[in-house]
């Protein structure tokens, strides 16, 4: 196994660890961290597999996609954090409760 493949496998492992955290951890800040780790994992896989080319240089297209992705991720993170703060102000809790209030 060559080193790009090792990093690609690290990428999907990070994706899964983030997914695990997103599901298991309840605090919204932790969920936001989890989404960021998932994103990093995808970016890593995308770029690492681009190093399989026979030529000298790695494939630049995934690099550009990842830079796009990093900017999208920081935008979404900033929005999520502000939303979290507002939610805590309004409801006093940084955890989404699943109590079925729908029928009240």
């Amino acid at each position: 196994m060559n080193s790009p493949m090792i990093y690609a496998l690290l990428g999907i492992t990070l994706f899964s660890v983030g997914l695990y955290g997103l599901i298991v951890r309840e605090h919204l800040l932790r969920k936001i961290l989890a989404l960021n780790i998932m994103g990093s994992g995808i970016f890593l896989m995308l770029v690492a597999l681009g190093k399989r080319s026979a030529g000298e240089l790695p494939d630049p297209v995934p690099h550009a996609m990842v830079i796009t992705g990093i900017v999208v991720a920081v935008s979404a993170t900033a929005l999520a954090l502000t939303l979290m703060l507002k939610l805590v102000e309004a409801s006093g809790s940084a955890v989404l409760h699943d109590a079925p209030k729908d029928r009240s």
């Binding site: 790695p58 690099h63 920081v74």
Partner: peptide, 27 residues
């Protein structure tokens, strides 16, 4: 290591720096 210096720069500035600062401020 993956020969992606453009992403390394973006990650250091945004991924680690700004996202971290955003999280700290939020906390």
């Amino acid at each position: 290591r993956l020969e992606a210096p453009d992403i390394a720069l973006a990650e250091a500035a945004i991924g680690a720096g700004l996202t971290g600062a955003l999280m700290m401020a939020a906390l």
